[in-house]
Design a binder for these strands. Structure first.
Length: 557
RNA sequence: UGCCGGAUCGUCUAACGGUAGGACAGCGGCCUUUGGAGCCGUAUGUAGAGGUUCGAAUCCUCUUCCGGCAGCCA
């Protein structure tokens, strides 16, 4: 985790308890070595972030090591672009893998040798059954399978055939190498699982060097073993794979890490499977993997989330073995907490309406002081300007206000933050009855910081019409309309059509003239925003709303 | 229907035979030049039935419900 956040007090989850016990019994000679092993077939999402935080957090807490390892065993699904994005995301999160960016593909030769060993022990064989027949032979969850007619080939024949597989003498699907275990095992994974399949495809790292590729079950334990991993932490769906993980390593009699499973993260109102995320990207429902509505790490980054907030969130959700659906509000809490403490405050009006202060001298401009961050006095103050015409938020005026409305109303008073108390004297409407301008008067005695003790119920934000900048603002809402879209067959039917709202005529204070991509701000009373790196440029400011402020008034209505 | 897991406030998560606690969300109040933040207060939970025990969320039995496994994906 980044050094600037303190290691949070974690109530020990069950994995920490296992490690504590291992340390006590000296099972791994005092070592702790974890890894994060993504397949480079997509961008990382917040669920991966939880795993990264868990694995790296363990390494850090126990003075151990943490590897980033690409499980690149299937060239048909993997791409260099994904490798690059994953490295970027893991680095951004601050999980320090030092110089250990590792690849399963670097172990292909060694894995091949191990496979030869298994064949020689009579524990693996080349099978000619085609895909469909093999499935039939596997049986079902309630019925045992039956053995392949090729199961009892001699060691010599298997060795010969396996070498020919490697040499490219067969077509895709023509032959596989299988472990010889038990076709009637109640655990389907143990019914002679495939170790190698023939794929004549170019691999993003090994090119055409190989045409046989190891399967997950064969490869993963070997990768962990080769790297000296102590605790191989994965998600619950691999629980039934553990006996197989153990079987391979036991047969080979090589270094044997311990696989531990935990429940993957699910977040409400979004989907988390790579397949579904890919579909959202390919169908252009979102604007790429880093669309700010995506639950990807790059999406959250572009949205304005900080690594610290994701770390904190990851601590808050905890680690256990039961399936869970975590409410998105917990993530929002984590980012608000961070940004409240750290974000520069600034005034911006998203939905402007012009206010003319009729008793304020024309042509006059005065300077006022605004606080940069009330949570951080050391961040100081800045100057803002005030003059006769300002913009306020349309929502901050109501002609016929409901009970409890604290803002500007006809004949009522409200404070313009850091400036004066104004009173609404007149409403100007166009021909169709839309309010286009408010005429107000100000009370010169009430300048902010002055001696006046006059109090009003409401304080609203504003910008000076003279020097405000135009900006585009992008407001995001949840991508789906239901809590758990991933559980639905027709999950795409639940896309929220209003998940992105683009506002083009926002006005922001000139302080935002020279901001950099991803710079983070609180627009007072509106929420946290950051500069979008994709659409923002010199002449066109574009801000993404990271999250709203909590709004107890809106919530009440 | 076979095997493997799992079930604690609305949500997430603690409690390891000895007062069911925390966080988020909610509600109420105080405070406030952000209806933000902060502070204070508050409601809500051990899936069910038996058993062991002085004492059970925790151990045992049965039941119910949920998840995973029948890719040459990971």
């Amino acid at each position: 985790m980044p050094d600037n956040i303190s290691s949070p007090k974690k109530s020990k989850n069950f994995i920490y308890e296992i490690i504590d016990e291992d340390l006590k019994t000296n099972k791994w000679s005092g070592r702790v070595h974890t890894r994060f092993p993504p397949e480079p077939n997509g961008y990382l999402h917040i669920g991966h972030a939880k795993s990264i935080c868990l694995n790296y957090g363990i390494a850090k807490d126990y003075n151990g090591k943490f590897n980033l390892r690409f499980d690149d065993t299937n060239p048909t699904k993997e791409e260099k672009e994904y490798v690059d994005s994953i490295i970027e995301d893991v680095k951004w999160l601050g999980a320090d893998f030092e110089d250990r960016v590792l690849y399963a593909s670097d172990y292909f030769e060694q894995m091949y040798d191990y496979a030869v060993q298994l064949i020689k022990k009579g524990k693996a064989y080349v099978d000619d059954l085609d895909n469909e027949t093999m499935r039939e032979y596997r049986g079902t969850v309630t019925q045992p399978g039956k053995e392949s007619p090729f199961r009892n080939r001699t060691v010599e024949e298997n060795l010969y055939l396996f070498e020919r597989m490697r040499n490219g003498e067969f077509n895709d699907g023509e032959k596989v190498l299988r472990a010889k275990i038990d076709m009637s095992s109640p655990n389907m994974l143990l019914r002679d699982p495939v170790m190698y399949r023939i794929i004549h495809a170019s691999h993003h790292r090994t090119g055409n060097e190989w045409c046989i590729y190891p399967t997950y079950d064969w490869a993963h334990g070997l990768e962990d073993s080769i790297e000296g991993i102590t605790h191989s932490i994965c998600t619950l769906e691999f629980e039934v794979h553990r006996p197989l993980y153990d079987w391979f390593l036991d047969q080979l009699e090589i270094y044997h890490p311990q696989q531990i499973e935990f429940a993957r993260l699910n977040l409400s109102y979004t989907v988390m499977s790579k397949r579904k995320l890919l579909e959202l990207v390919e169908k252009r429902i979102v604007d790429g993997w880093d669309d700010p509505r995506m639950p990807t790490i790059s999406g959250f980054r572009r949205r304005g989330y900080t690594p610290e907030s994701i770390w904190n969130f990851s601590e808050l959700v905890g680690v256990a073995k039961r399936d869970a659906l975590t409410d998105i509000s917990l993530l929002e809490y984590a980012i608000r907490e961070d940004l409240n403490k750290n974000a520069q405050r600034v005034m911006a009006v998203i939905n402007p309406i012009k206010v003319v202060i009729t008793n304020y001298p024309e042509g006059q401009t005065e300077f006022l002081e605004a606080v940069n961050n009330p949570e951080k006095p050391e961040s100081g103050k800045r100057q803002i300007t005030f003059s006769r015409e300002v913009f306020i938020e349309k929502d901050d005026f109501m002609e016929n206000p409901p009970k409890g409305y604290h803002r500007l109303v006809p004949g009522g008073e409200v404070r313009l933050k850091y400036a004066y108390i104004i009173k609404c004297e007149e409403i100007i409407k166009d021909n169709s009855g839309n309010i286009i301008e408010l005429r107000c008067t100000y009370d010169p005695e009430t300048r902010s910081g002055g001696p006046s003790t006059k109090k009003v119920k409401g304080t609203i934000h504003w910008v000076n019409s003279k020097d405000s900048l135009d900006a585009q603002v992008r407001l995001y809402d949840r991508l789906f309309t239901i809590e758990n879209p991933g559980a639905e067959e027709n999950w795409l039917d639940y896309i929220n059509p209003y998940s992105l709202k683009i506002i083009n005529n926002a006005k922001v204070e000139p302080f935002l003239k020279s901001v950099k991509p991803l710079d983070k701000f609180q627009f007072e009373r509106l929420g946290y925003f950051c500069l979008d790196y994709k659409y923002s440029n010199e002449n066109n400011l574009v801000f993404n709303r990271t999250v709203t402020l909590k709004d107890s008034w809106n919530a009440k209505k």
